[in-house]
């Protein structure tokens, strides 16, 4: 009978981990989304396009490569949900916010990088996604992804009005 407490612990540990991960993971995600909304709103006037930008009224006086990247991982609870979903197939809803957050964060960082360097627009923005493998070698499927956003930052100057 002395084996039962340890068995109880073995059963309860993953459960506690799941519940803990659910609450902390959710709180982190909500906080991140709040911050993202504020920062995205603050930078909504910053021109970011996915094609080579040609301004009409301004001339380009400088350019450089700007990047923004983030490595983000999903919490234990969501990984568990995804594991269940993989039995049946279909849409893994719990992973979608992860990639959404990472992408928006990477784009925001790229914009902030451009703005910090005194650039006024980002032209030809591109996004890349890479999976980061865990070095512990467990097959639990570490859901860490790196998202890289990069583009060409442009310095713009208003054209002098043409003299007649």
């Amino acid at each position: 009978m002395d084996a039962s407490p340890s068995m109880l612990v073995q059963l309860l540990m993953p459960l506690a981990l799941l519940i803990g991960a659910y609450f902390i993971g959710n709180a982190i995600e909500k906080k991140h989304y709040r911050e993202l909304r504020v920062r995205e709103h603050a930078s909504r006037r910053f021109i970011t396009v996915t094609f080579p930008y040609e301004p009409r009224d301004e001339e380009i006086v400088g350019s450089t490569l700007v990047t923004g990247s983030v490595v983000i991982s999903v919490d234990y609870f969501k990984r568990f949900l995804a594991g269940l979903r993989m039995l049946f197939g279909g849409r893994i809803k719990s992973y979608e916010p992860l990639l959404d957050r990472a992408r928006r964060e990477a784009i925001m960082r790229m914009k902030e990088d451009a703005r910090a360097g005194g650039y006024h627009a980002v032209s030809n923005m591109r996004l890349e996604t890479a999976r980061i493998a865990s070095s512990s070698g467990n097959n639990k499927g570490t859901a860490a992804v790196e998202i890289l956003a990069f583009g060409t930052g442009l310095k713009l100057r208003r054209r002098a009005p043409a003299t007649p």
């Binding site: 981990l17 803990g20 991960a21 919490d75 790196e146």
Partner: peptide, 23 residues
């Protein structure tokens, strides 16, 4: 960094060590 990342893997969120490393 990997140990910290292992911990972060439980609660989710950004793995800052990896972001810096890759940058």
């Amino acid at each position: 960094r990997d140990i910290m990342a292992g911990f972060k893997n439980i609660v989710g969120g950004e793995l800052k060590g990896y972001t810096e490393l890759l940058n």
